[in-house]
Amino acid sequence: MKRLLFLLILLFVPPPGAFAATTYSLADFLVRLKGRAVTVDGFTCDFRQERRLKLFRRPVVFTGTLSVARPRKLAWTTVSPLPSRLIIDNDHGLRCVDGRGTRFDLAADPVTAAVTEQMWSFVNGSFATVPPGWKLALTGPETVTVTPDDNGFFAKISVGFDPVELRPLRVELDRNNGDVTIITFHDYRAVIPGAFSGCGGGR
């Protein structure tokens, strides 16, 4: 799970900026990511998530939108094949399934609290939560790969970025048991109206 959390940190690197470089070190790259993060107030993008899990009969594809706003708002909305929504606003959350919402308190839901905490870390440009001992490498000009140091949940996490805007384009999570999850992001734009306003808004 922690690997996942770190993935989420890397995942939502903020957009704009006329930046392009071809050769740089990992440290430089992380500094650039952090530099970008602090300049971004929020964004909305579409995503396509494909999960190839042993638990599933066949690969499952979900599509939807992701909205993030500083300091601590996030909405993960799936549109197809099943509509659902997860909204986090500071320390409170709302889960929407079938149009019905369930409010919850992050203090009482440590798993969601941990996931969102890492997302906020990202939004704030902080990478302090990378566990010591994990290998972080620049495996392509704009691809960061994380390899955990133990035989834990994930075997490898790779995040590919847009070379110019430093937006995440593709994230791949590989598990030790062969499970793979690939999420691609596209159509970055300003936060859409009503993105965080309950079960029915911001679609």
Binding site: L4, T78, T112, F153, R175
Partner: peptide, 20 residues
Amino acid sequence: GRLFLFLNSPRGFGAGDIVA
């Protein structure tokens, strides 16, 4: 049905073993 949706949400990314 609920479990399927959960596994495909960010909260369920790391919950495969628990679900099994």
